[in-house]
Design a protein around this nucleic acid. Structure first.
Lengths: 333, 333
DNA sequence: CTGTTAGCGCGTTCAT
DNA sequence: ATGAACGCGCTAACAG
């Protein structure tokens, strides 16, 4: 390339990067050859020199889930706009895999990491102690690293969801939640639910609590389990829209009407929640924007070369639709 | 690292790669230091030497779509198992972006590309003429490159879907399809529909043909448009489950019953199709496995260092559920 | 303004 | 069995 234009590689580098003045004659000559050959500098070699790869590691538990797939799109868009690309990994909630991927991120010298941790174990701790790499945590309050995290106030949102049901006259309220070790959808959301009940002088009924991964079948199973109890709730707080839909499926399949026979509130406001009938009353969180903001925050760390502990709390919003109603002549077994 | 162990970098390289015999004494010494320091070789530098990055570029039009999100998971899993990682890009059906990303893939010296093209333009052609990089096309029959493509037989699948409706006694059948330039979901599926009608001596009714991106709102809009005609179909072939769901939403919102008043068959067999009520009759395609197979095929090209034109046709399957029925006293306006 | 030199962190000769 | 020297493709520092 350089000799084709009859100049030194340095000159080529200079016209490409506009890093130093080059006489218009040489510049033109170089530019012409670039056009002709379609030459473009190797990002790998550049990465070696600059110790920057312009690559962001994005690690999430699952792709096939509206929350995360939207989040990916938000992150990708911001990354692209700033000249970064995304290396995507899927952890499937497997903590060993997570740590494994972290070390791959390090070896590949990624410029930064956006990480939706399932659980912060000692191995995670060790990694972040040992290596310094700009990071943004997603969905969990990771307080023991110097890096920002971004999430909604799960406790508050769940408190509001439960309170909303209580205000509708419900006193018997069950919950379909994530696994216990999932801090946000398993632990925090349960806490909010619990607190709301307690503040209203209502008791938590253990038989109405069901925990598992968020998928439709578990929603179905969870609702089934609960409907097999002697005493039945009149409303359910589902910690995800898919859980809510699974629950509604079970109920409808067994002759119950929503919301007349059971009120159900979901969480996420996935596309699902408006295409499903009845349309879901739910808690909205803007996952696309959360992905975008996480990426912005990360890129800021990278270019400013400094990270400050930040807590970014995203707003949530209760959206009332058709799956919830006032308590009135509700069925009893 | 090398001096910490009191050996040359070469020796370190040898124990890490097991490339040449090293005395057990030095080996142990090196291994100990590796353990202690957590040293791992820079993948970037390795990439520069080997001209291999162990990175696969995956380009798809959208993430938040079951078909693609499952496909990503399939591809990621196989990549991971073979020591590759995925650089993910989202094209949003924008052809300029596609070409843009292709050139990024080249500059980053990715080892291979999995590419869901929206439309193969001259710029695409030019790229693949100019540069040699292992590729697998996804979802479209790209015949003009030496690279394999993988897809289902869209024509046949649509033919079967339409035929199924005809066998149920339907003679007035509409279609909700992708945009015209989308070869697979817009063009091929329409062709299959058309051919099935023709073979049955039925005419294509242009007023019952609606084309747009596959999303729920367009399904709703499309169905609305069609239901505003003077003459109405008794069955619809929706070229995606989301379109089908949008259509059903419109119909149900306006007092029609599915399948009694209108039969609807979808396409994809997304998770959606069983959680929605009525459960969707649909054409199943295994997107997870397609992603996995695409990745296998690509990695094979990479390691064997030779590519042969292959056409991989994936099986599809009609799954009968609740959204379709025999024609009987169907409504007329 | 331009070219030469050095070095980013490895792997791969080629000597020893 | 080991290490020194070279090169992967690029940019930064130094000369001229």
């Amino acid at each position: 390339m350089a000799q084709k234009a009859g100049v030194s590689v340095t000159t080529v580098s200079r016209v490409i990067n506009n890093s130093k003045p080059v006489s218009s004659e040489l510049r033109e000559r170089v530019e012409r050859v670039i056009k002709e050959t379609g030459f473009a500098p190797s990002e790998v070699a550049r990465g070696l020199v600059h110790r920057k790869t312009k690559l962001i590691g994005l690690m999430i538990p699952k792709v096939a889930n509206t929350f995360f797939s939207q989040l990916i799109e938000g992150a990708e868009q911001v990354a692209k706009a700033n000249g970064f690309n995304i290396l995507l990994t899927v952890s499937h909630m497997d903590m060993e895999k997570e740590v494994d991927y972290l070390s791959i991120f390090k070896d590949r010298q990624l410029d930064g990491i956006i990480f939706s941790v399932s659980q912060f174990t000692n191995l995670h701790r060790q990694f972040f102690n040992e290596f310094e790499i700009p990071t943004v945590f997603l969905g969990q309050q990771i307080k023991e690293t110097p890096y920002p995290y971004i999430l909604i106030d799960n406790f508050k949102a769940s408190y509001e969801a439960t309170k909303y049901l209580i205000n509708k006259g419900h006193e018997k309220i069950g919950i379909l939640k994530g696994p216990d070790y999932d801090i946000s959808t398993g632990y925090e959301r349960y806490r909010g639910y619990q607190q709301a009940l307690q503040d209203a002088g209502l008791a938590v009924h253990d038989d109405w609590v069901f925990s598992d991964f968020h998928d439709i079948n578990n929603g179905y199973r969870g609702m089934k389990t609960i409907m097999e109890q002697d005493e039945l709730p009149t409303a359910m707080f589902a910690c995800s829209d898919v859980m809510a839909v699974g629950a509604i499926n079970y109920l409808q399949d067994h002759g119950f009407r929503i919301p007349q026979d059971m009120s159900i509130i979901g969480f996420d406001d996935a596309e699902l929640s408006t295409m499903f009938r009845p349309k879901l009353t739910t808690i909205r969180q803007d996952s696309f924007e959360m992905g975008a903001e996480a990426m912005r925050c990360l890129i800021e760390q990278i270019v400013e070369k400094k990270t400050e502990k930040k807590e970014i709390i995203f707003p949530h919003q209760l959206i009332e639709r058709e799956s919830t109603a006032e308590t009135t002549n509700y069925l009893r077994r």
